[in-house]
Amino acid sequence: MLQVQGVFKSYTTPQGPLAVLAGVDLHLAARSSLALMGESGSGKSTLMHLVAGLDRVDDGSIQVGERRLDRMSEAQLAHWRRTEIGLVFQQFNLIGSLRVDDNLAFQARLAGRFDARWQAQLVERLGLGDLLKRYPEQLSGGQQQRVAVGRALASRPGLLLADEPTGNLDEATSDEVLQLMLDLLRDTPTSLLMVTHSPRIAARLDRQVVLHRGRVLPADAR
């Protein structure tokens, strides 16, 4: 599903080039989950943005399914993001002017894949039935993140990217949201790449790796 090979990325700063990724190799099999860990500033979010097609590699390649992101135009990447991946963020990023039901359907409608039956299943399994007519500001953090998970999975994407999705939640709510996400993933063709700082959360996924000094290591090789 995902192949990252020899990826380099640096940024220009007043002090000169800042190397963030130095030959990253990473793979994620179809229908599997992978936790990406590492200290603050290790480049986890940078790698996630590259995999999401939100930024460009300096060198190396990223392939998702049959698509080479480093060979795609900006227009192709924008269309690919709308149709082929799901994104879940720490800050929820729901659309404040839309009610829960419309937030849930938003990504699927953009992708041209809205399925009322699947949406109804998501609503039931995420426990959102009594919240559909509320706005995001009327929800707790855990409720907002459940909506965000449902929105990301509504189009049944091949790849779900989650950047610290439980970082703003307490431990009990984190466990609840993660379990719901993993349960739903088992019923879809979706693979999961999650950035997390929590070893406890990471242990729930199929594999764990660590980003250290610009390279990816197995979790037990730090």
Rank of each mutant, 00 (worst) to 15 (best):
residue 142 G to Q: 09
residue 198 S to F: 09
residue 153 L to K: 01
residue 155 S to Y: 01
residue 146 R to Q: 04
residue 154 A to H: 05
residue 199 P to D: 01
residue 202 A to Y: 06
residue 216 V to N: 10
residue 192 L to N: 02
residue 177 V to Q: 10
residue 194 M to L: 13
residue 216 V to K: 12
residue 158 G to M: 06
residue 177 V to W: 01
residue 176 E to D: 15
residue 190 T to K: 01
residue 217 L to P: 03
residue 185 L to I: 02
residue 202 A to F: 05
residue 214 G to I: 05
residue 150 G to I: 02
residue 210 V to N: 11
residue 206 D to A: 11
residue 151 R to A: 06
residue 178 L to I: 13
residue 152 A to N: 03
residue 220 D to E: 13
residue 200 R to L: 12
residue 220 D to R: 07
residue 189 P to I: 08
residue 163 D to F: 14
residue 185 L to G: 05
residue 195 V to I: 15
residue 207 R to A: 15
residue 176 E to N: 07
residue 215 R to K: 14
residue 140 S to Y: 09
residue 194 M to R: 00
residue 190 T to A: 10
residue 214 G to E: 06
residue 194 M to G: 08
residue 177 V to D: 02
residue 197 H to R: 06
residue 171 E to F: 04
residue 177 V to H: 07
residue 171 E to P: 06
residue 146 R to S: 04
residue 173 T to S: 04
residue 213 R to I: 02
residue 173 T to N: 03
residue 201 I to Y: 02
residue 136 P to T: 12
residue 173 T to F: 13
residue 135 Y to W: 09
residue 159 L to P: 00
residue 152 A to Y: 02
residue 137 E to D: 15
residue 167 G to I: 11
residue 182 L to W: 01
residue 163 D to M: 10
residue 222 R to C: 12
residue 188 T to I: 00
residue 172 A to G: 02
residue 217 L to K: 08
residue 144 Q to I: 03
residue 153 L to G: 04
residue 169 L to P: 00
residue 191 S to I: 05
residue 187 D to R: 10
residue 221 A to C: 09
residue 214 G to M: 06
residue 190 T to C: 14
residue 199 P to V: 03
residue 153 L to C: 08
residue 198 S to K: 00
residue 193 L to D: 03
residue 186 R to G: 15
residue 170 D to H: 11
residue 218 P to M: 07
residue 165 P to L: 09
residue 186 R to V: 04
residue 217 L to R: 11
residue 157 P to T: 13
residue 165 P to F: 10
residue 180 L to M: 15
residue 202 A to R: 06
residue 184 L to Q: 06
residue 200 R to S: 12
residue 138 Q to E: 15
residue 190 T to Q: 05
residue 200 R to M: 10
residue 159 L to Q: 01
residue 169 L to H: 02
residue 151 R to Y: 10
residue 165 P to T: 10
residue 173 T to I: 11
residue 199 P to Q: 03
residue 150 G to Y: 08
